[in-house]
Design a protein around this nucleic acid. Structure first.
Lengths: 203, 203
DNA sequence: GAGGATTCTCAACACAGTGTCGAAAACCCG
DNA sequence: CGGGTTTTCGACACTGTGTTGAGAATCCTC
């Protein structure tokens, strides 16, 4: 626990906490999370290493907080398509495009946050929330389509997780090996792939 | 480098190396790789911690060797479908079933090996090989289909990596959260999903 | 089966990173 | 200002990694 420090007070301390998160975002862009030392994170925010522990229990806890920060944003990227009806290819593609933009910036740590092999308990919880939120939204969309008579290719929950994984891994690849495909090629293929995977149709 | 120790000699040392690999396979089943200490690995193979370094440079190097061991096996699982023509649903499903069986046993470290966030250079090399081998095979199959006039949904290479990721992540999930779906449900959905994704058709 | 060469083992060391503590400093309120 | 509270940091203990060098076990050849 970060000491008490929960009762009302937008003090200098909160400022530092934010600074720590911002600094971490930047530092995590350059190297794998495991290669970033706490000393480095603290230094980037202008405090001593041991000071870090006043704000976060561990690197994992900071990462969890970081992921927490973007949960809402990630969801909103796909909101347009999730709210649309039928095979709205345009809305889907735009959502994916917004999503891709984020991945190209923060892909490294996003990837690790999403698919790191052994997250700590706090991280696990946040990730679970992040994933199930997305999954739930996708599933709801698919179930709606199912009721509307569209030919969905399997149990909605399973199909939803597949779509989520497909998107995440495709973007993770795009980040890891940029230049293999143009953005348009990537987005078109992925958009069609999702529509085919879910509905079995090529619009 | 593990000293010289390369010229022909199935000596006691090679035996130990094998024992180390076998022991590691077992140990890695129970806990995340990062939680396994070298002391533990050495102990499981009956030697002192520092003795480990005679055989492997690091835990990562051992893991690379481990992945190396299964490269061939993994490829062969899908061989039947890769060699078949057109939409051979049966062959595809059987391949996936064989693949799933492996994942349910060694899913934990397989997953980490596939998608670990910051593999060492040796690991990276092995993984690259593992992935591009699979990708190349899949792509070849898809290109063949394309020439045969089947409606493939995008650049073969991109589609191939999507299929690979879809399979890996689905199985990784199945391992991480067993019991969510029956094996049949999983295999049927995945088989159909792949056929839809690649060819846009529901057989 | 005795010799030297090779292969193997391990205790001791040096080091890097984590997390804890408690005392000092800075801050904020009356 | 004087009090408690919040923030900072140096010093310590601990865990795990990787290295080294000396000796034991094993192998091979004659």
């Amino acid at each position: 626990m970060p000491a008490t420090r929960s009762r009302r007070a937008p003090t200098k301390g909160d400022q530092r906490e934010l600074a720590l998160l911002d600094a971490a975002r930047v530092v995590f862009r350059d190297k794998p999370i495991s290669a970033v030392t706490i000393d480095e994170l603290a230094g980037a925010a202008g405090i001593a290493r041991s000071g870090f522990y006043f704000y976060f229990e561990s690197k994992q806890a900071l990462l969890a907080a970081l992921v927490d920060q973007v949960v809402g944003e990630v969801d909103s990227e796909m909101a347009e398509w999730l709210a649309s009806d039928g095979l709205d290819r345009g809305a889907l593609r735009r959502g994916l495009q917004r999503s891709l933009a984020r991945w190209m910036v923060d892909g490294r740590w996003l990837r690790e946050a999403f698919i790191a092999p052994d997250p700590g308990p706090d991280m696990l919880q946040v990730r679970e929330r992040l994933f199930t939120t997305g999954c739930t939204l996708f599933r709801a969309r698919i179930e709606r389509d199912l009721r509307a008579g569209l030919p969905v290719g399997g149990p909605p929950e399973l199909v939803a997780t597949m779509v989520l994984h497909l998107r995440n891994m495709t973007f993770a690849d795009a980040f890891a090996k940029p230049g293999l495909h143009t953005e348009d090629e990537l987005l078109d293929t992925l958009t069609d792939a999702i529509l085919r995977l879910v509905y079995g149709v090529t619009p």
